[in-house]
Design a binder for these strands. Structure first.
Length: 621
DNA sequence: GTAGGGTTAG
């Protein structure tokens, strides 16, 4: 039985029970104790690299099983080695060149690999299908898959025939570039023309592409197809689709696929499978299901890894349960899993969301003391926390810290900072920062743009907002309805009703659909200028166009009518509100009461008004 | 004895 202490613990946070040290003592606690130490980095002494290359061969190899190529940790060493190799007589074999090329590629120096390949051709080092595949991969990783195809053609000329590996690399390149149609076409062509026999890796690559593109159904169809063609799907195949379904909130479909994989295909799930499912369930707040999966993992002795714990930490933090998140972190440490930057960043974010900045800072310092380098997301959480609390000096200090630490603020960092500055009324600094951001070649996104426009409007810089809008011209950012709503509101609040009207009419021309909020803002604009007739007209029109007025619409219109001494439709509107279950806000109520006092409205309305005031409002009356 | 996919967390 579960000890009662644990029960109360688990009732606070359902799935914690399955993580409690007592409950999981036998399986989980013992499993994580092994191997965290990474193999020591053996840095090469600055003597000739090729010399080592020859001397390591027999005697040292037993002690250092890693080859010279695997030991290369920086580009300089690699280039030096290449130079030495090219000056050898006779030239080392293509195999050795390939391994060097691979080492450079592993360090992500793709263009350098390509350069070396060119030199190999110049000095007539023989190249083979392996070389071609490595070089194609370099092109693809740089999102230059078309050049990868050119390399394929170059191979053809030299009688180097592509094989399934070559094509997988190219297919993956197309997927990386989101050229999904091209990828599908390639796969079909390969099968139809018998250019190679696709294997599971190739299907997995295509499936990954389809999932990236949001085409889960086709991905599942391909899963069935590969099986039918005698190509057995593996755990990666299923994991890819399961994760994609979870990200699309279709967790039940994911669970269905999970069952198919386990019970019909006999494929064992791994920690990746569970992580995806747990993540998906956390996003939907299905804690009982999360708990069940954790139990399943325990039963199958599948150890939770740093990601599993981080997913749980993040989920708890987003729920505001930072204390429970802390429990999870303590638990993982107890079990020998070190929290990493992501784990701590989630915790920091949790504290920031609750405005507990000193706690957030504590964690931030803790990270530093553990040698963990905070990344831009960590900084963004803190920036957000400070800005929300209007602690703008602290935020600004942190923002400058990002650059000092050798990082670059991203669009989110800038947007957060700009919003914070506007909120404390420092519009000039905010707008300067917006320009600085663009100078730094960062493109503002929809959020940045709306933050800036709103900030300018709220800081009495509507003209600036409008000129920015015009300056942006046909930019995609100018096609968001939110942008128009902000500007219409800003313009009409500063007496530029004509501008507001032009913007509103522009929507039609541009084929943009106004939101209810857009109508509200425009109606409010008309009322402000005493154009109650137009306000009423628009009120009716929005309904005709299928946009139902909401509570705000009614309140805005009522206030407009009252302020302009139009009393004939008040009662009708109030009755409509009652029918729709809307309520009157404080401003409307006080206006109504004023008019009743002044006898321009009948006191018999009081009963109806009483029904339209929210509960807490009635007490105030 | 050299190449390909590798899915999962903030």
């Amino acid at each position: 039985m579960v000890p009662s202490r644990l029960r109360s613990f688990s009732s606070r946070c359902g799935f914690l029970y399955y993580l409690s040290p007592v409950a999981t003592h036998y399986s989980l606690l013992s499993l994580h104790r092994s191997s965290f130490s990474e193999p020591g980095n053996q840095i090469l002494p600055p003597k000739t690299i090729l010399g080592r290359f020859h001397s390591t061969s027999s005697s040292n190899r037993a002690k250092h099983p890693r080859s010279i190529f695997e030991q290369i940790t920086n580009l300089d060493d690699a280039l030096k080695l290449f130079d030495e190799m090219t000056h050898k007589q006779p030239l080392p074999s293509v195999l050795k060149f390939n391994r060097l090329l691979q080492a450079v590629t592993k360090m992500k120096h793709y263009s350098c690999s390509i350069e070396l390949f060119k030199q190999m051709n110049l000095i007539c080092v023989p190249v083979n299908a392996y070389t071609i595949s490595i070089v194609i991969k370099c092109c693809c990783q740089m999102h230059r898959t078309s050049e990868g195809f050119a390399v394929l053609g170059y191979g053809f000329i030299r009688d180097i025939l592509p094989n399934v590996c070559t094509f997988i690399t190219l297919l993956n390149g197309l997927v990386l570039e989101d050229r999904i149609l091209k990828a599908e076409k390639l796969l079909k062509k390969l099968i139809k023309e018998g250019l190679c026999k696709p294997n599971a890796i190739m299907y997995n690559t295509m499936i990954k592409g389809l999932c990236r593109f949001g085409n889960n159904d086709t991905a599942i169809a391909l899963l069935k197809l590969m099986d039918g063609r005698g190509c057995k799907p593996d755990v990666v195949t299923y994991n890819t689709i399961i994760d994609s379904l979870c990200k699309d909130k279709m967790v039940d479909d994911a669970l269905k696929l999970f069952n198919e994989m386990v019970f019909h295909k006999g494929i064992l799930p791994d920690v990746v499978t569970y992580n995806s499912l747990i993540h998906g369930l956390c996003n939907l707040c299905r804690w009982d299901d999360v708990s069940n999966l954790l139990k399943e993992m325990e039963d199958q002795s599948i150890s939770l890894d740093v990601r599993t714990y981080s997913i749980l930490v993040d989920a708890l933090c987003k729920e505001g349960k930072v204390e429970d998140a802390n429990c999870i972190i303590n638990l993982m440490i107890e079990r020998g899993i070190d929290p990493n930057v992501v784990t701590y960043s989630s915790l920091i974010d949790g504290y920031c969301l609750r405005g507990e900045m000193s706690k957030a800072n504590e964690v931030f310092n803790l990270m530093g003391s553990q040698g963990l380098v905070p990344d831009i997301l960590t900084y963004n959480s803190l920036l957000n926390g400070y800005c929300k609390k209007l602690l703008i000096e602290e935020a600004m200090h942190l923002f400058n810290e990002i650059t000092k630490k050798g990082m670059k603020p991203d669009v989110i960092a800038y947007s957060t900072m700009i919003q914070g500055l506007f909120r404390v009324g420092r519009g000039k600094v905010a707008y300067d920062l917006f320009h600085e951001m663009r100078t730094n070649k960062l493109m503002p996104n929809e959020s940045t743009y709306t933050i800036v426009l709103k900030g300018l409007c709220n800081n009495k810089q509507v003209d600036e907002a409008l000129s920015l809008f015009h300056l942006m011209g046909g930019n995609k950012l100018n096609s968001y309805i939110k942008v128009y709503t902000i500007l219409i509101d800003g313009a009409s609040r500063t007496g530029k009703l004509d501008v507001a009207r032009v913007l509103f009419n522009d929507l039609n021309v541009k084929g943009l659909q106004p939101h209810v909020r857009t109508y509200n803002v425009m109606i409010n604009g008309f009322c402000r200028e005493g154009l109650v007739g137009e306000a009423k007209e628009l009120f009716l029109k929005m309904e005709e166009r299928g946009f139902l007025p909401n509570s705000v619409t009614y309140n805005v219109l009522l206030q407009g009518l009252l302020k302009n001494q139009q009393h004939d439709t008040i009662e009708m509107l109030l009755l409509e509100m009652e029918g729709k279950g809307f309520s009157v806000d404080a401003t409307t109520v006080s206006l109504l009461l004023d008019h009743i006092k002044a006898r321009s409205l009948d006191a018999s309305l009081l009963k109806l008004i009483g029904k339209l005031v929210p509960k807490e409002g009635v007490d105030a009356l």
